[in-house]
Design a protein around this nucleic acid. Structure first.
Length: 659
RNA sequence: AGGAAAGUGGAGUAACUGGCAACUCGACAGCCUUUGAAGCUGUUGUUUCGGGUUCAAAUCCCGACUUUCCUUCCA
């Protein structure tokens, strides 16, 4: 079975841990904070954790990191669980807040060990004691409180005797550490706020670092993956786990950091997503232009496509921005093999087929030959998902005297390279014959009202266009989505231009609405079917707004449009002339020729020849110019000829290869 | 400023730890085509830069440069 995660620095660690016996089974976890909706960034992290567990026959835990009652809501918990299950990631969900009692006990233990103290300074006073990284902080006057006093204070904090912000439980580590995270960071704060899950049971809440380490251990996590900004936090993570022991802690997890992946032409921070909604730049969390899972689902992407994308972008220890094309490719690639083809016209132009005597019913295949050929089981899906043999995968389309074609598919006088219909020209109608445009009808303002065409009995056409019957096609609304922003990195751009909001880079055309006509065959199939509207892209009905008699289709993704790109480019200046390469100043002096005695040479030659004979293709490649292969031959030779000077081996090989 | 992490084509990820710079996306060109799609073939590189070690460096050493992160009672 192929692996879900290609080898990377994390799989190396896991394999070593399995091999040395440090762990018996891999346990990973995904710890979202329920303060917003899951988005593409989450799917990357979650996919990594989930796939790693799957690859090594381990366990994956979903844990709600619900330690901040001020921002977290049940609504988000449910939405996250729902979205992840939709992605195919189902599990027993854990809640950090369910373990508050254990966390409290562990904190008491730290106090008892003299490793934590209650600081009673205000936030401002504490900040005043903080220095820069090169100088030690000034200790708080409360740093040396007795264990007994700390215990009492912490108990009173829990009992609710103090208002918010008056006391803070801090770890007692090192005020001089160059790692600022180690300068007595906060463990527990006072917060008189009801928790969505725990109600009023608590008025002290654990802070991130503390909760993360303890919860990972409680959940039995072995490899705790997080993003790069937490590298400095690893020291505190380890410090906590080394200094706390509690029967509820089932494992000694270790933290590893990976680089985040952001996506071009979008933003992913929760604050910014919220602003998009507040400013009504989008209609909500599930607006199909949003990067949330809910939005992408509504738009029509499949979990398969999203997972393929998450898998395809890889893992490394560097934050990276991924080309939006990678997502678009994953979506098209997924849809290409699963979507039946039908025809829809987005901007109708009436065509009258003057010589069509009677309407015809045409049986047209749902799939082109290449999809059928690529099918692994030889079957293809109907719109309802059922897989059938290709000859059963077809639908009936009416050809009538009046049809609609796309306005873009007609040009009165052709431009260079135009392969569609022109006045006096011919084009093929998909699935039928060739038509010729005889004349056209214009309004007084010059707008083309109708084309009068004749079906040809023979002849050739260089282009093929789609069409629908004007009599039987059904009207529908098409929502064409495009990138939300007009620049690849709106956040970066906004930061560079002073006083510029990222919203100024919104793409004004990210949603375009068209009123088109659609072949009526789709009425016979389930409303949640996805289709390719030929030459227009992949579509499905909007699950919220579409209804019988008022169909609304979302364009999931357009087809790749190389012609549109060429035509649109027009007078765009071609990139500046290539810099001419400067010849390298001075070649490295050749290594001095080595004198090789005939004896030595004769001794080596047989084994070297056998190496060359064993790799005829590489010898050929070498002679074809790939001289870098010399290193490969030397390497091979050195495996068997230990003790021989590689210099001599190389020299002899060179002679053998270049007689 | 101090500390940390990281730099491989236009983009993302690799390269058995010193021995063929590979794979995917994009772009471009050609082929094919009843979707200007898909598919097929090809092109797209001074491995950030400069030194060094070595028969051999993306990989090891030294120096520079650049980027990101940390100095929240958020996570």
């Amino acid at each position: 079975m192929s692996r879900l995660v290609s080898p990377n620095f994390i799989t190396e660690i896991i394999e070593a841990d399995l091999e040395t016996g440090r762990i018996k089974q891999v346990v990973t976890r995904f710890p979202p904070e329920p303060n917003g909706y899951a988005h593409l960034g989450h799917t990357f992290a979650c996919n990594l954790n989930h796939s790693l567990a799957a690859d090594y026959n381990g366990i994956w835990v979903l844990r709600m990191d619900d330690t901040n009652p001020e921002t977290e809501k049940l609504e988000y918990v449910n939405a996250i669980i729902h979205d992840l299950e939709w992605m195919g990631w189902k599990t027993q969900v854990q809640f950090a807040s369910d373990d508050f009692e254990i966390m409290y006990q562990c904190a008491v233990q730290l106090i008892e060990k003299g490793l934590a103290y209650v600081d009673s300074l205000s936030k401002e006073e504490m900040a005043a004691l903080r220095t820069t990284a090169d100088k030690p902080d000034t200790p708080s006057p409360y740093r040396n409180r007795s264990v007994a006093e700390n215990l009492e204070m912490f108990a009173r904090m829990r009992a609710g005797e103090f208002p918010n912000g008056t006391h803070l439980l801090r770890a007692k580590i090192d005020l001089a550490s160059p790692n600022m995270k180690l300068r007595d960071l906060g463990l527990y704060r006072i917060l008189h706020t009801e928790h969505y899950r725990q109600g009023a049971a608590w008025c002290i809440y654990p802070l991130y670092d503390y909760a993360q380490a303890i919860n990972d251990a409680i959940n039995g996590v072995t490899h705790s993956l997080c993003s790069l900004e937490f590298v400095d936090n690893r020291a505190i993570y380890d410090w906590l786990l080394e200094n706390i022991s509690h029967p509820a802690l089932k494992s000694r997890p270790y933290q590893y950091e990976f680089g985040r992946r952001s996506l071009e032409y979008t933003v992913v921070s929760k604050r910014k997503l919220r602003r998009l909604i507040e400013t009504q730049s989008v209609s909500g969390w599930d607006d199909p232009r949003m990067p949330t899972i809910a939005a992408q689902r509504r738009r029509g992407l499949t979990p398969d496509a999203i997972r393929a994308f998450a898998h395809g972008i890889g893992v490394s220890r560097t934050n990276r921005t991924v080309d939006i094309g990678a997502l678009e490719y994953a979506v098209r690639d997924d849809l290409n093999n699963r979507c039946p083809r039908v025809m829809a016209v987005l901007r109708p132009l009436k065509v009258i087929l003057e010589n069509l005597e009677a309407p015809q019913s045409l049986e047209l295949p749902f799939f082109p030959p290449d999809v059928i050929n690529a099918s692994l089981d030889g079957l293809v899906p109907l719109p309802n998902g059922q897989r059938v043999s290709p000859d059963q995968a077809s639908r009936i389309v009416q050809l009538t005297k009046e049809i609609f074609i796309e306005q873009d598919d007609f040009l009165e006088t052709p431009t260079a390279g135009f392969k569609r219909l022109t006045l006096g020209g011919t084009v093929r109608l998909r699935g039928t014959g060739i038509i010729r445009c005889e004349r056209l009808e214009k309004s007084d303002s010059g707008e083309i009202l109708a084309l009068y065409c004749t079906l040809q009995t023979e002849g050739k056409a260089s282009g093929v266009i789609h069409w629908v019957s004007a009599e039987s096609a059904i009207p529908f609304e098409a929502r064409l989505y495009d990138r939300l922003f007009s620049v690849p990195s709106p956040e970066k751009e906004a930061k560079e231009e002073e006083d510029t909001d990222f919203l100024t880079y919104l793409n004004p055309n990210s949603l375009e609405i068209r009123h088109g006509m659609l072949e009526n065959s789709i009425l016979e199939h389930p409303s949640q079917a996805r289709y390719q509207f030929e030459r227009n892209g992949y579509f499905w009905q909007d699950p919220i707004d579409s209804r019988q008699g008022a169909l609304v289709f979302n364009r999931i993704i357009g087809l790749k449009d190389t012609w549109g790109a060429v035509a649109g480019e027009g007078q765009k200046a071609k990139g500046e002339s290539k810099k001419t390469k400067e010849p390298k100043a001075e070649a490295k002096p050749e290594a001095p020729e080595i004198e090789i005695s005939a004896e030595v040479r004769d001794a080596l030659e047989p084994s070297l020849r056998s190496i060359l004979e064993a790799n005829p293709d590489k010898v050929g490649a070498y002679k074809g110019g790939r001289v870098g292969l010399l290193g490969f031959f030397v390497g091979e030779a050195m495996k068997t000829l230990k003790g021989t000077s590689p210099q001599i081996v190389q020299a002899v090989l060179k002679q053998l290869l270049e007689p």
